[in-house]
Write a protein that binds this DNA or RNA. Structure first.
Length: 785
DNA sequence: ATGCACGTACTTTTT
DNA sequence: GTACGTGCAT
């Protein structure tokens, strides 16, 4: 196969580049992933063993996609490549060699919720007022420090003001606590990996010798620790290939440092630099608009996207009266374009700055019966019940992980509350070991606890011992998980819970079991295909558990399409951040207002800076460059935020788009107030005459309404709910129902499952109730025609 | 130990 | 406007 075929000249150059540092500026839609995968395949084809290639991404999704595309190019040997996220790769390295710098290789990984719990306890233990020293603030300072590879001591030395010293102290305590429990937070994985490479020369030699080529995706988002790590690993062969786009750097607030990509040349003066500027996604008009915006940023690497798709539709700027009208407008445009341009719902995306913008859209789409799917909301492995079950698993893997223990200690409820936990922690401290160790030790708790307390604790201790035992005897992960669920009676407990969410929770736990099965299966398959156990997983059974836990914590993405009510063919709603890397024929950028985009925190707050404004501008740029054919920019003249309705100003970024590229609609029409919006003419403009602008345009459009919704298609007769409940579900999706307190709503999901019986999810249209899950037997719903 | 009520705060969230 | 967390009362 000719790996250079079908690539443009700069892409070919990037693919065929042989040795030495390589920086690829890959603009939006410039075929970045294609170039990267072809380059890797090219390396393999030219004799580099996959085993000696390290490819790093930021997300599991990107890693997975790259792996799949590579397997298509080079076959299953791609599996032997080290390809993964920074965090996952670091975790693996630390499990293999972490003992060389005194780490317990069976560390567990804290997720952000665990981190917060830990920090809250630290703040409390330090007798500090958690209002003055917020755990979340402390954590972000800790994270900043770690991103810059600063130890607690270094932070303490730099601290001048008293409160900085306090935070430095909290960092130190937090770190002590983590190490004592053999746990690491996300940032530690990087920090400790760098330390490992720096402090253990033979480890550095081992890995840097091995990795002939190091490739890094989304390089604009790396932080100092990540760069140091990659730099060390590529130090021997100096084949470091980085791909990124400074214009799409939107994670500075998480420690990403754009300067690293911008200064790459300074660090590697012999670096080859390639720019991928041909865009295969958008029309020239969209690119020009995007360029108008992004070119206002200072200090960016100079480049400009171009395409063979000359011209294209104008971008549309629509001003609406308020957020509801804004959403209604988008719905109408979707319906119109879908019919006139034969597009599917899946061809549309609505991008927003903040998730709080979603409500009006959800309501408007619900009403019009156009399917809408919200992405990036809650993640599977972050659900409470999942984390509770996983806590058992984590603790089995690492019995010193008190965070995990405290999470499951009273789930399901077994009468152990904070008082008891305090007592146990006190004992643990006295004996200088973990709570888990104390509880596992038969003799140690007996006399120290009051009999009434001991009676509650003993069954727990028995359970814990059994679980440890189960871990030894289990054949695989699924087997162990089954035993945990059986012994804890978790499913039975969830089933007994009477709230509507318990239905979901039970289903989620079952989903987790399926994830375990998939994991076991994948493991078996990989072993099969490669004819051997891969080095990562062939370290005995406990590590297999560690692998899974690593996957789970590090792969927040477990957020399947958790949906029975969200079809694949649906309009997508998401934040600009979540949209990075995606593309849609039609994009709506909603809320193009001062305060929202750019966000108020970047403009009005006292900490606002040019850097922040520039990042907001990059967000706008990312949003625009998602669009293939059409881009709509919408704003609401009045918006309710934090319970207050205010008149808005249009985004300053709009003025950066060349005027001829913009078609103004609704209140944005010249003379309708929209154009003047940034002065203060709004008051009068909108209310009376202003509306006309879109009214005329819109009235002719068909607009499915509520009453048109079919609820009659042969479903059960609407008699008593209870009587119907015994048989087939009496409610189906799209039924209109009435609830005595919530009012009228629309059934958006219905099922008959679990111990709680039939349940429905109802989107209430009155009084901002939103969506609620209801158990039919309890909810006393009435069907209305 | 659990439930309710009041107060507060509230971008974005790859791992 | 809401959602969550803390604190008090049962």
């Amino acid at each position: 196969m000719d790996l250079l075929e079908g690539l443009n000249p700069p892409q070919q150059q990037a693919v065929a580049h042989s040795e030495g540092p390589l920086l690829i500026f890959a603009g939006a839609g410039s075929g970045k992933t294609r170039t990267l995968t072809h380059r890797i395949a090219y390396l393999i084809e030219h004799g580099t063993s996959p085993h000696r290639i390290l490819a790093v991404t930021f997300t599991n999704k990107a890693a997975k996609e790259m792996r799949e595309r590579l397997e298509k190019l080079v076959g299953p040997v791609a599996k032997r490549m080290w390809l993964g996220t920074f965090h996952a790769l670091c975790a693996q390295m630390l499990r293999i060699h972490g003992d060389r710098i005194g780490l317990n290789p069976r560390f567990s990984i804290l997720d952000s919720d665990d981190q917060l719990r830990a920090m809250k306890e630290i703040v409390k233990d330090a007798n500090l007022d958690s209002d003055r020293f917020k755990p979340s603030v402390a954590l972000s300072k800790v994270s900043d420090a770690k991103n810059d590879l600063l130890t607690p001591e270094q932070v303490a030395l730099r601290a001048n003001k008293p409160h900085e010293k306090v935070y430095a102290n909290l960092y130190a305590r937090y770190q002590e606590r983590l190490r004592a429990n053999s746990v690491m937070d996300f940032d530690d994985l990087l920090v400790e990996s760098v330390r490992l490479l720096k402090e253990s020369p033979e480890t550095l030699e081992h890995w840097s010798d091995r990795f002939k080529h190091v490739l890094i995706d989304e390089f604009q988002d790396v932080n100092e620790a990540q760069f140091q790590w990659a730099r060390l690993l590529s130090g021997k062969h100096r084949n470091i290939c980085v791909v990124g786009d400074d214009d799409q750097s939107i994670y500075a607030w998480r420690g990403a440092n754009v300067k690293i990509i911008l200064d790459f040349e300074k660090i590697y003066p012999d670096a080859t630099i390639i720019r991928l500027e041909q865009n295969y996604r958008s029309t020239q008009n969209i690119l020009d608009a995007a360029y108008g915006v992004i070119s206002q940023n200072a200090g960016r690497a100079s480049k400009r996207l171009w395409t063979e798709e000359k011209g294209g539709a104008q971008l549309v700027l629509h001003g609406a009266l308020n957020a509801q009208e804004e959403a209604a407008y988008v719905v109408r445009q979707v319906e119109l374009l879908r019919r006139e341009e034969h597009l599917g719902f899946g061809d549309f995306a609505i991008l927003c700055r903040v998730n709080a913008q979603s409500r009006p859209f959800e309501e408007a789409f619900l009403r019009s019966r156009v399917p809408l799917k919200l992405v990036g909301t809650q993640r599977f492995y972050e659900r409470r019940e999942i984390r509770d079950v996983l806590a058992y698993l984590r603790w089995i893997y690492n019995p010193d992980d008190d965070g995990a223990l405290k999470r499951f200690i009273n789930v399901p409820p077994r009468g152990i509350g904070s008082a008891t936990i305090d007592k146990l922690e006190g004992m643990a401290r006295e004996q200088n070991r973990s709570v888990g160790a104390v509880l596992l030790d038969n003799g140690s708790t007996g006399k120290a606890l009051a009999p009434t307390v001991a009676r509650k604790v003993e069954p727990l201790q028995r359970l814990m011992r059994h679980l440890m035992d189960d871990a030894q005897k289990s054949l695989n992960l699924t087997d162990l998980m089954d035993k945990i669920l059986e012994r804890t009676r978790m499913l039975e407990w969830l089933r007994g819970e009477r709230d509507a969410d318990s239905v979901d929770r039970e289903a989620n736990v079952e989903e987790l079991v399926r994830a375990c099965e998939a994991f076991d299966l994948r493991l078996a398959e990989d072993v099969d295909e490669l004819g051997e156990t891969s080095e990562i997983w062939n370290e005995g059974d406990p590590l297999r558990l560690g692998m899974f836990l690593g996957d789970v914590v590090l792969d927040g993405a477990g957020d399947k399409d958790n949906s029975k009510n969200q079809s694949d063919e649906a309009v997508t709603f998401m934040t600009l951040h979540a949209a990075k890397g995606l593309e849609f024929p039609v994009v709506f950028l909603a809320g193009v207002e001062q305060g929202l985009l750019p966000h108020s925190r970047a403009v009005f707050s006292e900490s606002a800076s040019d850097e922040q404004l520039e990042e907001e501008r990059r967000l706008m740029y990312v949003g625009l460059t998602r669009a293939e054919k059409r881009a709509y920019l919408t704003y609401a003249q009045q918006r309710t935020m934090h319970g207050r309705t205010e008149t808005t100003q249009t985004s300053q970024f709009l003025e950066e788009i060349p005027a001829h590229l913009l078609e103004r609609e609704g209140l944005a029409k010249a003379g309708q107030g929209g154009f003047m919006a940034r002065s203060s003419e709004w008051e009068n403009a909108g209310r009376g005459a202003g509306r006309g602008g879109y009214r005329e345009r819109v009235e002719s459009l068909p607009r499915p309404t509520f009453s048109a919704a079919s609820s009659s298609s042969g479903s059960a007769s609407s008699g008593s709910v209870r009587e119907a409940n015994a048989k087939a579900p009496s409610f189906r999706v799209s039924d209109k129902v009435r609830h005595k307190t919530y009012g009228d709503g629309l059934v958006v999901a219905a099922a008959h499952q679990g111990g709680a019986g039939e349940w429905v999810e109802v989107a209430f249209l009155t009084g901002g109730v939103g969506k609620k899950k209801l158990i039919v037997a309890f909810a006393n719903l009435e069907k209305v025609e």
